[in-house]
Amino acid sequence: MDIVDFLSARIGEDEAAARALLGDRSLSKSGVWYEQRLLLECEAKRHLIRIVESARQSALAAMVSGSGQDAGWIPQSLEWMEQSLAALALPYYDHPDFDQAWFRT
């Protein structure tokens, strides 16, 4: 499982839990606010993953095609993208599918 698949699955789980709790009529106003906030955070994380993945694919394509005059930026950019995805995965460190290799300091 790669980090994007891992994150997509965890975000889906978070979203399902928030939706289930929002269906609970005994939830307080603060609880409703929190669960709605969690749903928005799930969408924000998905959006960020799409941005990073698009940039990563573009960088890999440029590296493979050799079309960039100065491709020296690509490895460093790829490292930043990997670190960004790892930061998103960190809250799930205790999940059995979490790979410690994703998070390097």
Rank of each mutant, 00 (worst) to 15 (best):
S67F: 03
K45Q: 06
D99I: 03
D14Y: 05
R37Q: 04
L38H: 00
W33A: 05
H47V: 06
R10A: 04
D94E: 02
R10W: 07
K29M: 02
A89T: 12
D2T: 02
A9C: 10
V32Y: 01
A16P: 08
C42M: 05
K29A: 07
F98N: 00
L78H: 15
A89K: 12
G23C: 02
R46T: 02
D2Y: 00
L27A: 01
L60H: 11
F103Y: 15
Q76M: 12
A9L: 11
S54C: 09
F98A: 08
H95S: 03
W33C: 01
A20R: 11
L40Q: 09
D97M: 09
K45S: 04
W73K: 12
D94A: 01
S65N: 05
Q69Y: 07
Y92M: 04
S28A: 06
D2R: 00
S8N: 13
F103N: 10
H95E: 04
D97E: 13
S65F: 04
G23Y: 02
S28D: 10
A18H: 03
W73Y: 14
G68E: 09
D5I: 12
R50L: 06
A55T: 05
A17G: 04
D2M: 00
L48K: 10
L7R: 01
F103K: 12
S30P: 00
W33H: 04
F98W: 04
A89D: 06
A62G: 06
E15C: 11
I51D: 10
Y34N: 00
A101R: 13
G72A: 12
E15S: 14
W102G: 08
I74D: 09
S65A: 10
W80D: 11
L39C: 06
Y93T: 05
V64L: 04
M1R: 13
H95P: 00
S65G: 09
R25Y: 02
L78D: 13
G12R: 15
A20V: 08
I74G: 12
A86V: 10
I49Q: 03
A9Q: 08
